[in-house]
Simulated assay, not measured.
Amino acid sequence: MQLWHNLKKVGPLLGIVLGATLAAYSVQGFIVHAGLGGGGIGGIALILFYTLGLPIGLMTFLMNIPLFFLGWREVSRQFVIKTLIGLVIYSIALDLLKGIRPLPFEDIFLGALYGGVLGGIGSGIVFRLGGSLGGTDIIAKVIQRRFGWAMGTTMLFFNAFILLISWAFLGPKIALYSLVSMFTFSRTVDAIQGGIPAKSVTIISNNSDMLVSRIHHEVGRGATFLQGRGSFSAEEKNVIICVVSMPEIGHLKRVIREVDPHAFLIIQDASEVVGQGWAVE
């Protein structure tokens, strides 16, 4: 029990270290190798590296210091502490991994694509564990808490401003490829933040009891009954709400067709599902 308790305390910190290192690897291994820019504080650090030769990691850390005061006032102390750990590891790894070349590619698009995906995975891991890597991540976290905006979308908005600066210093071609990297990064972050991809299914059927029984036993998912009434027939009906994973949607549709071929079915994306049987924050 004591070992499990210690793992629960240390595990998130190890995850933050892993995510921060992966994010740094994506920058040095793909973004810098392709000569691309970036967004936020990291984008400014890249411009300073390309133009003045200043260390990316050191400049990233120094420029983040003022933002910690914002994070300390606006978000939880735990978030700030985890962000500080992530930022320190990220900054150190950025400079330690300088010059690394995982693949001898010359395609700028591949650098933008893989740099964005790996960076998004690394940052997304840190976000899910309650921290960030500093920069506009802190601002995005504050806005998420106040207004509920997706962090990846907010970061894309702020990073667009830095992209204009990159356009001036690095040229339009590099700036546009950098936009590909930034967009890929933000979509990857949102995907990881949203957890397991799922579908919310609304079913209106005259055989609702039998249908729910088969969903329980064959699909392995629970369901919720809502009371509904048809607008034309005025007939009372049970409305079934069920959430399933992407691989399960085909099985669910097959069960519905077998029980009630005339069932009315609505399938919607569930951007985030939290609760028993699903990944939790």
Rank of each mutant, 00 (worst) to 15 (best):
M1Q: 12
L3V: 09
L3R: 15
N6C: 11
K8L: 15
P12C: 13
L14C: 13
L14Y: 04
G15I: 08
I16M: 07
A20Y: 01
A24D: 00
V27N: 13
G39C: 02
I41F: 00
G42H: 09
G43D: 09
G43P: 06
I44Q: 09
I44D: 14
I44G: 07
L46G: 08
Y50M: 12
L52D: 08
P55W: 11
P55N: 12
I56A: 04
I56T: 10
M59Y: 11
L62P: 05
M63I: 12
N64P: 10
N64V: 02
P66A: 13
G71W: 10
V75L: 04
S76W: 05
S76K: 12
I81P: 05
L84S: 11
G86R: 01
S91K: 03
L94W: 03
L97H: 06
R101C: 10
P102T: 06
P102V: 09
L103V: 13
F105Y: 14
F105N: 12
D107T: 08
F109A: 15
G111H: 02
L113F: 11
Y114I: 09
G115K: 05
L118G: 04
G120I: 04
I121F: 13
G122F: 10
G122S: 10
F127W: 03
L129G: 07
G130H: 09
L133M: 03
G134R: 07
G134S: 01
T136A: 00
T136F: 01
I143N: 01
W149P: 01
A150E: 11
T153H: 14
L156M: 13
F158Y: 10
F158C: 11
N159S: 07
A168Q: 14
F169V: 14
P172C: 13
P172L: 14
K173R: 09
I174H: 04
A175K: 09
Y177H: 08
Y177Q: 07
Y177L: 02
Y177V: 06
S178T: 08
L179S: 10
V180D: 05
F183E: 07
S186F: 00
T188L: 08
D190V: 07
D190P: 00
A191I: 07
G194A: 15
A198Y: 04
A198R: 08
A198I: 01
S200E: 05
T202I: 14
T202Y: 04
I203V: 06
S205Q: 02
S205N: 00
N206T: 13
N206D: 11
S208N: 01
S208F: 06
M210W: 00
S213L: 10
S213W: 09
I215L: 10
V219M: 06
R221V: 03
V239F: 09
I240D: 08
V244F: 11
V244T: 13
S245F: 10
E248N: 15
I249C: 11
G250F: 15
H251W: 12
K253P: 03
R254F: 07
I256K: 09
V259N: 06
P261R: 01
H262V: 10
A263D: 00
D269K: 04
A270E: 05
A270R: 02
S271N: 07
E272S: 06
E272H: 08
V273C: 10
V273M: 00
G277D: 03
G277Y: 08
V280H: 12
